Amino acid sequence: MVRALSAAPAAWHADPYTDALRSGRGPLFLRRPDGWLLPLEVERWCAEPDLADRTVLRRCRGAVLDIGCGPGRLVAALAAEGIAALGVDVSPEAVRRTRDWGGSALCRSVFDRLPGEGRWDTALLVDGNVGIGGDPAALLARVAQLVVPGGLLLAETAPYEIDERIRVRVADASGAAGGDFPWARLGTNALLSCARPLGWRPAGRWTAAGRPFVALRRR
């Protein structure tokens, strides 16, 4: 299953996403085939960490792997504090911006081979990244391979209860869009239900600035 999900979605190389990261602003959306749109918070991703982000950063322990790091605000903030951190993202532009901010990043899928597998103390899945690959169970199983026994996963969940598997495209306001790819959205209860059978135990939950988060500990 891991290898089946290893190819980086070409959609994140598409011009709408790359252009938004280069400019540091949207609007940008995930668009479902029925026309439903989920706004993507490009401006927030390209800014300094906000108060909600800081609640995540304060909970990081040891070496940190930021999965789907985007333009790298969290990786750069950790690096500025002298904390070992690595971002991984399938977008070359996201990786470039992360490095420009002083963070370390690799252009790679989480399902590809990564440095330090099994030795990361903390993993991050923020900004909706629990949806990567459209299969949360496969993603959580992969993260369990990456962290140390007893390692920590800090994940952001949807701000309402949902458990959805969908296919989406990255689109801008003009209608330009990349190719479609699988994605998922999970509320807190759905994430906890998915995580427990995979050897993750709840270690905390909190909300900051309307954004809900969960801490999970690998058994």
Rank of each mutant, 00 (worst) to 15 (best):
S193M: 12
R108H: 13
P136W: 02
R201E: 12
R108E: 09
A195E: 03
R185T: 04
D163C: 14
V126A: 11
G103N: 00
R196I: 15
T188H: 11
D172H: 15
L152T: 03
G118Y: 13
G178C: 13
R119Q: 14
L106R: 03
A85I: 12
V110G: 07
P212C: 06
A208K: 07
V75S: 07
A123D: 13
A94Y: 15
N189E: 15
R99G: 01
A158I: 01
G199V: 01
A123L: 10
P159S: 09
T188I: 09
V110R: 05
A209E: 15
P71M: 03
L198E: 10
R196G: 11
L153I: 01
V75T: 10
A141D: 15
S104N: 12
A80F: 07
A80N: 09
A138E: 06
A76V: 11
L86C: 02
V130W: 07
R97A: 12
N129Y: 09
G187K: 04
P197F: 09
L139S: 10
G131C: 00
V168D: 05
A138F: 05
S174N: 05
R99P: 05
L124M: 06
F213V: 11
A173M: 14
S174P: 00
V90K: 01
I162Y: 00
R99N: 03
A84V: 11
A77E: 14
F181K: 11
G128A: 03
V95M: 04
A158V: 06
L124D: 03
T122L: 04
P115Y: 02
A173S: 15
F213N: 13
G128M: 00
V75R: 09
P212N: 07
A173C: 06
A203N: 08
E93T: 15
R73W: 05
L154A: 09
V148H: 02
D163P: 09
G204L: 02
W120M: 11
D180F: 00
P197Y: 08
A105P: 01
A105Q: 03
G82M: 07
C194N: 08
V147P: 02
T157N: 08
S174A: 15
E164V: 04
G187W: 06
T157W: 08
D172A: 12
A123V: 08
P202M: 14
G179D: 13
G82Y: 00
Q145K: 15
W206G: 06
